[in-house]
Design a protein around this nucleic acid. Sequence first.
DNA 1: CGCACACTTGACTGACCGGTCAACTCGCCG
DNA 2: CGGCGAGTTGACCGGTCAGTCAAGTGTGCG
Lengths: 193, 193
Amino acid sequence: MQTRDRIVRSAARLFLTRSYQSVGIADLCTAADVRKGSFYHFFPSKADLAKAVVDLHAGELERRLAADGSPAERLFAVADAVTQIQTGFEKRFGRVVGCPFGNLAAELSTTDDELRAHVAGVFARWEARLADACRAAADAGALHDGVTPATLAHMILAQIQGLILLAKVSGAPAAEITAGLRAMITTNVREAA
Amino acid sequence: MQTRDRIVRSAARLFLTRSYQSVGIADLCTAADVRKGSFYHFFPSKADLAKAVVDLHAGELERRLAADGSPAERLFAVADAVTQIQTGFEKRFGRVVGCPFGNLAAELSTTDDELRAHVAGVFARWEARLADACRAAADAGALHDGVTPATLAHMILAQIQGLILLAKVSGAPAAEITAGLRAMITTNVREAA
DNA sequence: CGCACACTTGACTGACCGGTCAACTCGCCG
DNA sequence: CGGCGAGTTGACCGGTCAGTCAAGTGTGCG
């Protein structure tokens, strides 16, 4: 069962450093040291591999999103998780390569509806988790008036995606993502963590 | 000179409804009713066409970003411009198809450095223009403390990109972009427009 | 008239695409 | 021992990809 794992991990790397469409099955197989027939023994299609890659990243994110501390701290913990993941990518690949979900969402949501829905599901769960923290913060009176927890969660997720995209296209360091994200949360939460 | 224009406009439509990589030169030529040889008479490569498409959208955005009114109004005018463009796309294509710049940035900035730089330039000019409005708002005392005009401009641009991406992947209506963007600006500016 | 040149045409190239397949290896289980 | 099935292999498929090219067409200008 390690072959399948090798394929998924190689694919995750290649999809990040290049893109889904620019990487062929042959590239994938070379990178994972696997022959084409073996690839298709584990995955019915390239799109199914992409789903597996999404699930891999989703698991990784889930693991880093362990929630504890005060409501405000829980919000900043999300920023920290994103920071860790993005600086990790920056170290491995030498530059900001984008969000694993956002990249695939932007590239494929118009051409592959199944994959679009799959990524949308990951985003929905992420946003729901954020909304929980926002609701807790609101109950603790840590939020300014006029913004509901649900819209704040949506705004934070959008900010994460936007900051990562801008850093990726401009070649900015991952630290810029961290700074922008913390600034954004700070303006919406009363106490700093 | 109308042939070239027809190619660029058809390409703009196809790149939005599908994606850059999923559209072949043959598709482009069919859509523009042009033969392949003619295409290569006007564009040395597919990537050069993409640059022309970016410039077309950039001109369109520039035109809708005409600045007047109070500093706070100028910020909300950016939100309105984005709204108009995105709802226009939604009417034409039946769904949110993403930001013309963000889509290409996400898809190609890892594989085509020239195109990446081209799109980054558009973003930089857009952000500079936003920063102008933010600085004017700061001078008028309309901004809360603790956030510099430059970082606010960056945050707004990131919010635009993130909201559009999330709407695109989740199949949400363009109105959600408008709402989120206005909410974000409202929390950072004292007076509403 | 005749040339020059912007533009058009459609056939063509070679590489690469995602995906298929029959044959093979090998360890486990009856 | 027999054989079954998970996993592997490399040759192979039709189609599509971006890009090329030689031969046109039509228009304006000297």
